[in-house]
Design a protein around this nucleic acid. Sequence first.
DNA 1: GTGAAAGCGCTAACAG
DNA 2: CTGTTAGCGCTTTCAC
Lengths: 335, 335
Amino acid sequence: MDRLMKPTIYDIAQKAGVSAATVSNVVNSRGRVGEETRKKVVKVMDELHYRPNLAASVLKGKPARTIGFFVPDMLNPIYMEYVKYAEERAQACGFSIIMCSTENDPQKERVQADILRQKNVDGFIITSKFQNEQLLQELEQEGFPSLCLAHERNEFQFDSVTGDDEQAGQMAADYLVSLNHINVAMIAEKDSLSSPGRITGFQKRFQELGKNAPPVFFAEASIERAKKVAKEVIREKKPTALFGGNDVIAVGIIQAARELNLSIPAELSVIGLDNTFLCEIVSPQVTAISMPVKKISYKGIDLLIDKMKSGRDVRKAAVYPPALVERVSAQKRKK
Amino acid sequence: MDRLMKPTIYDIAQKAGVSAATVSNVVNSRGRVGEETRKKVVKVMDELHYRPNLAASVLKGKPARTIGFFVPDMLNPIYMEYVKYAEERAQACGFSIIMCSTENDPQKERVQADILRQKNVDGFIITSKFQNEQLLQELEQEGFPSLCLAHERNEFQFDSVTGDDEQAGQMAADYLVSLNHINVAMIAEKDSLSSPGRITGFQKRFQELGKNAPPVFFAEASIERAKKVAKEVIREKKPTALFGGNDVIAVGIIQAARELNLSIPAELSVIGLDNTFLCEIVSPQVTAISMPVKKISYKGIDLLIDKMKSGRDVRKAAVYPPALVERVSAQKRKK
DNA sequence: GTGAAAGCGCTAACAG
DNA sequence: CTGTTAGCGCTTTCAC
């Protein structure tokens, strides 16, 4: 064996005086190998710093132990959190995560999905509505293991793991009502698959409690945009409380209030949804309905791996309940 | 060809009436292929939705077009920004990024590095001091393409791309001095490889300007920890201005001031370093010395790819100058 | 300009 | 319990 080449199974076999098959068996703890031989082989592998070449076993049809993870925007705190925990869990399960930022561009989605599949990635996790419906259809048809994280696509057979958006909306409503707020509005993220549930839950709950359903306004997922919309809403509706459909929007509301010299929570109560680290960074700190991001990510990885291994074709969907995290951005309405 | 199997070059070759070698040549635009044949082959590839299997070509020794990206903590905004731009650039260059969160654990560093190399990753980008020095030595010895992003390791031969930490510290000093602040302190990140340069630049500049070098205190890289240290410093030193060695620390200072009922910038000026999105989220928005994160990431990817392709062994290091971004957290000292 | 053939490193029957 | 063998899909001389 050339001293510069990485050792192969054959080098190990030769040096240990066994066959390549035996080495392979040792590496994969498969087949019956005598304890003697096993030890010997292990010893040689250590000495030579043997590292199996995954490309070869992948070529033979074994899994690449790699997952493609698609996000529209890596700098959005909510996606960062999903990524973080997904990677954490994947690592624990012996998988790696390839990041793919798509910018919501169907073209990029397609190109990256193709590349990842050339790389024999075992499955995809998709964290926001893919723009490329045709791609989704192909994935479904081929039965390529894919999972929707933090959103659902009922038209497709993909597994999904989400927080309960409707319940989250409901909880926000309950909380605001318990604080005596009547003149309330919601600013929801435009084009988000989470928004409909959150809106429905919020409005329905108000009605169930015998109040008018609060109006809903829309903003894109950026603090800047949300701030702009919030300013308009505040000026026109003069609400005593505002519900941000996600944390980024809640932060936009906070900034709008500041620029309008409205004090929070004295003059305006604000409640967010997701409970990312943003809530603790801004001031005042934001009361929010918390989505169990870590649990969702972990379960997403688990379900996807399960799907890859079992090859099951029945769809699985997990939904986790949100929870209220009280901080200081909302208070009882002053008489 | 089985209708369920992914097509191989042989399937393409057969259907196009040529040999596998020719198909390979077409795929890689290599060798001489007649225009006629080329078109025909391309057509068949399209029809069959042919997607080359990277595992096979990697096995043959071609690059996997994948980079391993190590971060200690994905939720730290500065790393998120580095990842974001690195991925963006890598994508443009036809590479993918595998994320690896190490939590500064030498054991994890080792395990993940081994796994990535089994996966035939072409190179590593390391964003903070690896704890596992032995691993670094091995990488260096084997000439495995690796690059230090946003820090340097002069003991090793790795390429590096950084912002100029010393100059950044200097600029912070200049700015604070220009604002008439004399009673100043710095809170730097403990155990960060960026801190020494930032500290040196900051202190030296004060001395060059004929002032006393401001004292430096240390905090770990978390808002919580920084806040705690900041409170102590404020109580004991009663500074008129505080320099946060990075944005996370600056935010900790802001929160400390708030809890101490000190108004910023009226009673305390604060300046951060890095200029991540955090600076715009907190209030008041933070004046900061900005590191050109995007440029650094882009260059890091470019250098690493260059290194992989050229196999050069001379070390390259790029350093980018910081810039002052004025916001509202610092102002002229009141008489 | 195109094809035949060997082999990258590993796996999985199947023999022995 | 261990070895032989035949590929996985692609690349790359080297003939033709």
